[in-house]
Nucleic acid binder design. Structure first.
Length: 882
RNA sequence: AAGUAAUUAGUUCAACGGUAGAAUAUUUCGUUUACACUGAAGAGGUUAUUGGUUCGAAUCCAAUAUUACUUACCA
């Protein structure tokens, strides 16, 4: 059957993916005789869909895992999804709303039922999409952060850390998301520059005609004011120290306090203090023992402290109250003011700082081994290293982690309350254990299960994700199990730098806390995928191409190559579909190279041409040379460079040179020796290409000859490098010279407009070496009638020099002499200029004295060459003019 | 506001202090024998700007500009 001139990714990709799955090639089992190579996937949100970031990230992981598999490691890539509590819960709430169901009307159990229904319907779609990309995950190991195996491990971690005294319950100022009605960790708050207003408000001073003016961006919080603060050294306000002011409209008296915290330069130098709604005001309030008045409901509407604004949203109140103040003469002016406003990462709602009882994890001690491992001992290496600084900065300034969320979709906090006092609670793995503890703690043996109330809150999603490399192997609940002992620590973690703190750093804490071991050796931080305008690709901007459509258009292999060609670790990727086009073109090129070889008729009797033998020998060494650099780049996680070397090896060396030399004359067969060798070399190409281009490489591999499943490329082996010797590098330089000469001849042919069908002859002057290697290849590639060696230069004939030899192509009057003369003169001028600059350099005594000998020798050589060239050019000009 | 990095061909990126290179796009000329995704060849650059160190700077130092990220936060 004739093979198509176009590689057809669509028909090929599913076929081989199914084949690999059928034969269980992705699956890994504990095998003490093999070294493990483990990667755990950064679990995508269970309800998510594949976007460009996932594609990049998972392509990199697949390249690493496939290469490890070929190199004989027991490669294990563990896939899974994350329950993403806040994101998923928000989606479920929104969906219920469209059905007219309000979350607040449901019980926890009813709501969770809806959430599970949703998860079962949409969950795992993204994993199916990863299959399209070619991801060779061990799907039998697929995990979900909320499933029965992982849930108890999260709970046990909480209990353990509580018992160690690292988890505590505290009344603190936290980040409140009024839309999701939950707290958020500091990392989940995104500060955005927003334009607001600065309102200047008059506060009348008690027993005085005077008033203070306070500048605020949040007039609606005035209901919670409990003081006005001035700087103790502010001379503008010396005379009113110790007095009180009246809050406008509310007519409540509050004290004027002094604190150095106040910035005299900002606004009027007077700060209104609202301890319930600002972290700094809270600190001030504690210091000066101020009353704390919480004026907001959960959804950031005003509560009864808001008087006639009760029930209105904070932003409406801001407008309405400003208007009222103005009407009553208390508002002096409004200024436009840009400032940063904290918003929820998930819901985008403006964060309301709020005081509440929450669970916290102490970070101070957990952080220490994580700092050491990355910054001192290099037990864990970040690629690229530049992220170490950000990592250090964050860890050194870390605050306690708020781990409770007022959500239902997640791991319910295993704290059980049994009494009315805040301290009447115990922490335990389950209710039965909790009961025993509670009876003991309360000294009341009459307590029953019915008296226990479990904490309603769920844990932060990252509190389960940070255990991921351990929990997927049951390492928390059963640390001695064989799998955990074998696969952990894992090798590589591939993820975006945006979750360096959310996730990567925390996994490192957890790893050391639980196992005294690092969770992984290398962290490969990909760049963000951006569009041509350098904007981050995101759903809201609508600038992210449809991942599956890309695969459809360019093939998974094409997209993989496109993504990897230009994405060094840590560098953002400016995505352009042209890259995928290039990837697709590359795959097609290999396909056609295969088609060419496959189409050759093989003859047992034909003898191997000298040129073929030389070229095959050369390619073997060239391949080895490239493989050495590919391996070195992999060591440094420079995947793009690895791929580019392979790209050029196949495009230029294999297709451009080797196949052109081997190609038999039209209608003639190829000798069987060359054929066997070219097939072997093609197979080696496919082996190193497979991690990047899994589908097409397997397709070609299987088309070369019939293979049993055990012979599939995916589980074949990786070529090993050979040592280079002076002999091998001589072969490489000699061939390189051939190519230079070929290029020289072609250039002259083109410059002189000599049609390809016309043969030319070649004359070599001062010939010293190499005819054995040179002549067969020149004859094959350059359509030469004859090659002659001459002792003396042929004046006037076009020429070039290569490795000490001079090459001439006599043209027998086919050339326009005047144009020729012009060109030669231009070249002479240029070379003389070049000579001048080199001479200048060499006459600089300080250069000759200080520069290394090698460099000076190089310059001398240049000088010499330029002088020779000038002589030759002058002679040629003379000959033409004559 | 501070910290970190980046700034090189139209574009995406390379380049131990020693003549700035690839890939791609573009241009020209080819192709009856794998490759509407083929072959060959040219063109392209004051390496963001200004100083400094050095015999010599894209590279090291300082400042400036722009961009991105991270952290912090001003009422």
């Amino acid at each position: 059957m004739a093979l198509s001139t176009q590689y057809d990714s669509k028909s090929v990709e599913n076929k081989w993916y199914n084949y690999w799955m059928e034969h269980n090639f992705f699956h890994s089992e504990v095998d003490p005789n093999k070294e493990p190579y483990t990667i755990v996937i950064p679990p995508p949100n269970v309800t998510g869909v594949l976007h460009m970031g996932h594609m990049l990230n998972n392509t990199i992981q697949d390249v690493l895992i496939r290469r490890a598999r070929l190199r004989g490691y027991n490669a294990c890539w563990v896939p899974g999804t994350d329950h993403a509590s806040i994101a998923t819960e928000a989606k479920v709430v929104a969906k219920l709303k469209t059905q007219g169901i309000n979350k607040n009307d449901l019980t926890r159990e009813e709501f969770l039922k809806h959430a599970w229904d949703w998860t079962n319907e949409y969950g795992g779609v993204i994993l199916e999409q990863l299959k399209k990309l070619g991801a060779s995950c061990d799907w039998e190991r697929t995990k979900f952060t909320l499933d029965d195996e992982l849930y108890p491990q999260v709970i046990q971690t909480f209990v353990d850390l509580y018992n160690k005294g690292l988890i505590y319950r505290g009344y603190r100022m936290i980040n409140w998301d009024p839309e999701a009605k939950t707290t958020l960790s500091d990392e989940e708050v995104i500060y955005e520059e927003k334009q607001g207003k600065l309102y200047y408000i008059k506060y009348p001073i008690v027993d005085s005609e005077e008033f203070l003016t306070v500048a605020t961006t949040r007039p609606e919080t005035i209901f919670g004011d409990t003081a006005i603060c001035i700087h103790p050294e502010d001379t503008r306000y010396t005379h009113i120290k110790g007095k009180k002011v009246i809050i406008p409209v509310l007519n409540r008296e509050i004290p004027i306090i002094e604190d150095e915290y106040v910035d005299m330069e900002f606004g009027t130098g007077c700060l209104k203090v609202t301890p319930a709604h600002d972290p700094n005001d809270k600190t001030l309030g504690e210091k000066h023992q101020l009353e704390v008045i919480d004026i907001f409901n959960e959804d950031a509407t005003l509560n009864s402290f808001g008087l006639h604004y009760e029930g209105q949203d904070r932003f409406e109140v801001r407008k309405g109250f400003a208007k009222e103040l103005q009407e009553k003469g208390f508002l002096i002016k409004e200024e436009v003011h840009t400032h940063k406003v904290g918003t929820s990462e998930r819901t985008k709602a403006v964060i309301e700082p709020r005081l509440s009882d929450q669970w916290f994890l102490k970070m101070e001690d957990l952080v220490k081994p994580a700092l050491k491992a990355v910054l001192e001992t290099d037990e864990i290496v970040l690629h690229p290293k530049k992220f170490e600084n950000t990592y250090r900065h964050w860890l050194e300034n870390i605050r306690d982690w708020n781990i409770s969320r007022q959500l239902w979709w997640g791991h319910q906090i295993p704290a059980y309350y049994y009494g009315d006092d805040k301290q009447d609670f115990v922490v335990a793995k389950n209710a039965d254990e909790a009961l025993k503890l509670a009876q003991k703690k309360s000294k009341n043996s009459a307590l029953t299960l019915a008296d226990l109330k479990q904490d309603k809150d769920a844990l932060d999603t990252w509190f389960s994700a940070w255990l991921w490399p351990m929990s997927v192997f049951n390492g928390i609940t059963d640390p001695n199990n064989k799998e955990f002992q074998y696969y952990y620590p894992t090798n590589d973690l591939v993820t975006g730098p945006d979750i360096l703190f959310f996730w990567v750093a925390r996994m490192i804490f957890a790893g050391y806390e639980y196992t005294d071991k690092k969770p992984f050796k290398n962290v490969y931080l990909t760049g963000l995928v951006r569009d041509k305008k350098r904007r981050k690709m995101s759903k809201s901007l609508g600038n992210s191409p449809d991942a599956l459509k890309l695969i459809d258009d360019y093939g998974a292999d094409g997209v993989r190559v496109g993504l990897l060609l230009s994405s060094a670790a840590g560098n953002d990727l400016m995505f352009d579909e042209d890259l995928c086009q290039q990837g697709k073109g590359f795959v097609n090129k290999i396909w056609n190279a295969f088609r060419l070889i496959k189409g050759w008729e093989v003859s047992e009797s034909a003898t191997q041409p000298k040129a073929s033998k030389l070229a095959l020998e050369w390619y073997e060494h060239r391949f080895n040379e490239v493989l050495i650099s590919v391996d070195a780049n992999f060591e440094k996680y420079r995947l793009s460079d690895s791929l580019m070397s392979i790209y050029k090896l196949i495009y230029d060396d294999f297709c451009g040179q080797l196949l052109e030399i081997l190609k038999p004359a039209f209608g003639k067969p190829i000798d069987s020796t060359s054929y066997a060798q070219i097939i072997a070399l093609l197979e080696d190409n496919l082996r190193i290409l497979h991690p990047f281009v899994p589908f097409a490489s397997e397709e070609i591999w299987q088309n070369i000859q019939e293979r049993s499943p055990e012979e599939a490329l995916i589980i074949n082996n990786y070529p090993s490098t050979k040592e280079t010797t002076p002999e091998t590098s001589k072969i490489l330089t000699d061939f390189n010279e051939c190519i230079q000469v070929v290029t020289g001849i072609r250039r002259i042919r083109q410059e002189k407009n000599i049609a390809f069908k016309d043969t030319v002859s070649l004359q070599l002057c001062n010939h010293t070496k190499n005819s054995d290697r040179l002549y067969p290849i020149l004859t094959k590639l350059c359509n030469l009638s004859k090659i002659t060696e001459v002792a003396k230069a042929i004046e006037g004939a076009p020429s070039f020099r290569e490795s000490g030899n001079e090459y001439f192509i006599p043209l027998q009057g086919l050339v326009n002499m005047e144009e020729e003369l012009q060109k030669l003169k231009e070249e002479l001028t240029y070379t003389e200029g070049f000579l001048k600059s080199v001479t200048k350099k060499l006459s600089n005594e300080r250069f000759v004295a200080n520069a290394p000998e090698k460099v000076v020798a190089g310059e001398r050589k240049k000088l010499e060459d330029a002088e020779t060239k000038i002589t030759t050019l002058k002679n040629s000009i003379k000959a033409l003019e004559a």
